[in-house]
Design a protein around this nucleic acid. Sequence first.
DNA 1: CACCAGGCCCTAT
DNA 2: ATAGGGCATGGT
Length: 200
Amino acid sequence: MRSLFVSLSRTYGFMYWWPASSPSEVIVGAILAQNTSWKNVEKALKLLRGIELNDLIVREDLEDLIRPAGFYRQKSRYLRNAIKYYIDKIENLSLPFSVREEMLSIEGIGRETADSIALYAFHQRTVPVDSYTLRVLNRFFSSNFSIKDYEHIRHLLIQAFSTDELMEFHGLIDEHAKRVCLKNPLCNVCKISEKCPGRR
DNA sequence: CACCAGGCCCTAT
DNA sequence: ATAGGGCATGGT
């Protein structure tokens, strides 16, 4: 794991992947980003900018505001669920035990979203295991993990890295997958690509 | 035109 | 337990 980290790190430098935004911004972004390109998420985030959380959950036009991010009917519901929860439980009471576990009980928050929020909004030691992560790891280790191995991979990563490193690692994986693995045809089999840092 | 994007939930088997 | 379908917009 660490050799992959070092390799990616040398190639891309430091990724300001979900920097200095407030916890609520991370929550909203994570939900909007479900199966949706970040570009579309940004359009929606722009429309939401400046709206207080308390207002956001009661607005009738929430669906319209997040429309660019797609799945706006379910996501508007998910957002209300999560934000209400955040306001009631997390904002007031001090930080709960495990944000991951807390969030998993909310309708619309699955493992990936919960882990993203726990890590990037609350700096808790976990990491989302998305399809990019699986793809890069599989190429690097010539393995064949699937989404069924979510927990396994997550534990491997948690054991290998500190919280700060996990934040960085996930950002690097994402950057690498987008910039190289998806664009460069050779990188479809990573191991034969000269440019691919995941190459052994 | 087809396919995908930083998933999740529900249903039928 | 788990595969399959629905959800929706915008980019390539």
